[in-house]
């Protein structure tokens, strides 16, 4: 990551593309700002005029109802005008068409792109090729990063566990294909979590994953020992077809979160999941619906965290203009 692409010369957020290269202070500031918005969403009037008159484009090259909805709600609550554009594209779509799309939208004088794309690096590519007044927020690019998801997860962890430096966190599932896991690992390391583990069969672990700052475990029971936060990842059903796993059933036996395995973690461990969950594939229904699960809180927190990130990035853009 080019150090300065996401940040202005004075170190403020301009784009939000990846956790990489962002300081602990900046991440904490995002969490603090999110907290100030969180109370507001409980009130009857849920809007603040911070981004009144601004146009935010949700540019989704990959379907995602939930992420797009929370971005849309966050933008609306900041009083911005929101345009949703869904462009279903194949993996072979060319950069030139992506660029043409950007150029056309720029010509409509928009202020921010919220981008989701199936190719790693797409959000950075758009940030590099957009007009200088446009802020780009990465809503997930390929297998690279999903930094707003990671920040809402950090926010949720902070609600339940006060001190990151005492925390042992385990991320379980398809780490290899997960942009969420990559961003979470970076965020947890930046926030100085005591230990980050990834638990998965070898077929779903990236090469040299320890270089990212996560200790790999192939055995879930060993990996869950002393854990404070359990993050389950969604398993895509296509993985069976591509010879990465034999069956859902076998996966559930080895890497599904069952009450028996949950008992190995600390007694007050929380269970998280970026959703949507596959009940009975990666997580037992009784856990997903139990008091240990904070999955729905993650969804609600998504709005406040995205409000924080969008308003911070846009304010710094304005300051520059």
């Amino acid at each position: 990551m080019k150090q300065n692409l996401q940040l202005s010369d004075d170190g403020k957020l301009k784009h939000f593309l990846s956790i990489e290269g962002l300081s602990r202070d900046l991440l904490l500031k995002i969490l603090d700002t999110a907290e100030s918005f969180a109370g507001m969403t409980e009130q009857s009037v849920k809007k603040v005029p911070l981004l009144r008159g601004k146009t935010i484009v949700n540019l989704f090259f990959e379907n995602s109802t939930r992420t797009r909805t929370t971005f849309e709600l966050a933008a609306t609550r900041l009083s911005a005008d929101v345009l949703n554009i869904n462009i279903a594209t194949s993996a072979t779509s060319k950069g030139e068409s992506l660029l043409d799309t950007i150029r056309n939208l720029e010509a409509m004088h928009v202020d921010m792109f919220v981008v989701r794309h199936a190719i790693s690096g797409a959000a950075q590519f758009i940030a590099e090729n957009s007009a200088s007044h446009i802020s780009v927020i990465n809503a997930g690019d390929g297998q690279h990063a999903h930094p707003t998801q990671a920040m809402l997860d950090m926010y949720t962890i902070k609600q339940h566990k006060t001190d990151f430096s005492q925390l042992k966190v385990a991320i379980i599932g398809d780490i290899l294909h997960s942009r969420v896991a990559r961003s979470q690992i970076l965020a947890l390391n930046t926030l100085q979590a005591e230990e980050v583990r990834v638990i998965a069969p070898k077929t779903l672990l990236p090469a040299q994953v320890e270089c990212l700052g996560a200790e790999p475990y192939l055995n879930m029971k060993q990996g869950l020992k002393d854990i404070d936060v359990i993050i389950m990842l969604r398993l895509q059903k296509e993985r069976m077809k591509s010879a990465l796993l034999p069956s859902e059933n076998e996966y559930y036996k080895c890497f599904g979160l069952t009450p028996e395995k949950l008992a190995i973690a600390k007694a007050d461990a929380i269970v998280m999941h970026p959703g949507p969950i596959n009940r009975g594939v990666e997580i037992d229904s009784s856990i997903a619906d139990s008091h240990r699960s904070v999955i729905l809180q993650q969804v609600s927190n998504g709005i406040a965290v995205r409000m924080a990130i969008m308003s911070m990035a846009m304010q710094n853009m304005e300051a520059k203009a």
Partner: peptide, 15 residues
């Protein structure tokens, strides 16, 4: 190249 950098940036690797 399948290694630490490809893993970090989510780039499909060639071992």
């Amino acid at each position: 190249h399948e290694g630490a950098n490809a893993s970090r940036y989510g780039l499909p690797g060639i071992p």
